[in-house]
């Protein structure tokens, strides 16, 4: 029963990872590519790691509980650092003077 939930969570995570990769390829410019890259990946990591932690702790021994907790610690760490990395990249783009892609600009020179 627990394994079924773990596999479902893992597949949800893989689905979000796929969305992130497709979004990175399809979106038109650098600013909008950051939206799927930074955060669909974070959500996918949360779900995949939750599934794997659930599969790890299912025999309920002391060391496996520790390992599951460490997997969740990775998720907490990524949730703190991922916005910071995204912000660093977008700040570099703004300071280098990259203009964001908008709809009007596209109509001017197609």
């Amino acid at each position: 029963m627990m394994d079924v939930i773990a596999v479902i969570l893992l597949f949800c995570g893989l689905f979000f990872f796929t969305g992130g990769a497709v979004g990175i390829i399809r979106f038109p410019d650098f600013y909008s590519r950051l939206h799927p890259a930074g955060k669909l990946d974070t959500a996918g990591l949360l779900m995949a790691m939750a599934g794997m932690a659930l599969h790890t702790i299912h025999d309920l021994s002391m060391s496996s509980l520790f390992t599951g907790f460490k997997i969740l610690l990775i998720v907490v760490f990524v949730f703190i650092t991922s916005p910071t990395a995204t912000h660093a990249i977008i700040d570099a783009g703004v300071r280098a003077g990259l203009r964001p892609w908008t709809k009007k600009e596209k109509e001017e020179h197609p």
């Binding site: 979000f16 969305g19 497709v22 979004g23 399809r26 979106f27 038109p28 410019d29 600013y31 909008s32 939206h35 799927p36 955060k39 669909l40 959500a43 964001p100 892609w101 908008t102 709809k103």
Partner: peptide
């Protein structure tokens, strides 16, 4: 809130007419 917004962006990413839907600005 993150979950709801993720579903929204997933729909946007996998939509066939994505270029008409998005409107990025600051």
């Amino acid at each position: 809130q993150i979950f709801l917004a993720n579903i929204h962006v997933m729909r946007l990413v996998l939509h066939p007419q994505m270029m008409e839907l998005i409107d990025p600005k600051i």
